[in-house]
Design a protein around this nucleic acid. Structure first.
Lengths: 173, 173
DNA sequence: CCCGATTAGTTGGCCGACCACATATTCATG
DNA sequence: CATGAATATGTGGTCGGCCAACTAATCGGG
């Protein structure tokens, strides 16, 4: 790493040399991701969900009754995160949890009627956000963005171990 | 278990909007951002910082003594988030907070010696992550990714109101 | 000059997310 | 068949982050 990366110092002719290193892709990525999360959060709040819970529900809508460990792996989250999230969502009436008769350690999770009722709203919110996000981008640009993000994701997944979720393979499902 | 779950039933052709099936840019973006945050978190932990604190420190390194409200605006965070973060960072010895003599409501924040000592490590971590993130991407691809992310960011910033952080204006100190 | 509106910061509560640790249950092997 | 490894889940704690409600100080009119 003798890289001599003039990280910040660079008085680059770029558009925004604002505070220390604002020119990096990393910064922009973090910034965009936060805006995206906030935007999704607004849409979800009207539905009675918190950011992150919609992914859980999507998995449940697709798979019916699932073991909690499956959710943990498919969402790439920490087990404790899933446990607590499900406890809250159960208390809100969106999911039902029951012991797995085949494995007394495991817990089976399924969406309730109320949970199913959210599906249309969430899918609509998701599509709406996607559209708003990509407004003004040509199809080719959208494809390129998706491709580049995928490459970056692989880089990061490689470095961070091999956990995390898998957007592409969609093995099951 | 029994393979072939036609879960994502739609064998349909084309861009099935079936929300759950992970094809959207939004999904990929959220996924990549999470990996990115985790990767940065690892690097920061070795330095004694938590994710998000490095942005605060960067601002302080650049601006010297700043009013808290300035930090709030430049980082685009909630006031309470900044208050609590600074309280912890002060207790860790990275920053010092003092009342502004010119405005008895305001608080001036500045990095301590210990805080300044982190600068090299953070910049190095940031550069290292940037490199790891963009590994395998040609310069043109990196530029294109930055451009597209910028466009997406503008879209989201527009919709989310006028707050959020601004990599652009860089009104800076 | 006084009183309302704006600004600056704090506290409490809640959620997502992580880690470290603890528990129950199944599995694999000797 | 017993025993240790692996699995599935839960607890407690900490952080970043948001919202809502509150205090304190400054600013603007009337």
């Amino acid at each position: 790493m003798s890289g001599t990366d003039p990280v910040c110092t660079a008085p680059s002719a770029g558009p925004q040399p604002s505070a220390s290193c604002t020119g990096t892709v990393s910064h922009t990525l973090a910034w965009v991701a936060r805006l995206h999360r906030i935007a999704m959060g607004r849409r979800l709040r009207d539905l009675g969900l918190y950011p992150g819970q919609e992914l859980m529900m999507m998995r449940l809508w697709d798979c019916g009754a699932v073991r909690q460990s499956e959710l943990i792996q498919s969402l790439g989250l920490d087990p404790s995160t899933v446990t607590k999230m499900l406890q809250r969502m159960e208390q809100c009436g969106y999911v039902r949890r029951s012991p797995d008769p085949a494995d007394r350690r495991a817990v089976l999770v399924a969406a309730t009627e109320e949970g199913l009722a959210l599906r249309a709203g969430v899918e609509n919110a998701w599509a709406d956000l996607e559209q708003s996000t990509l407004a003004g981008l040509a199809p080719a640009e959208r494809a390129e963005l998706a491709r580049l993000l995928g490459l970056v994701g692989e880089n990061l997944a490689k470095e961070a171990g091999e956990d995390a979720c898998a957007p592409g393979p969609g093995a099951l499902c």
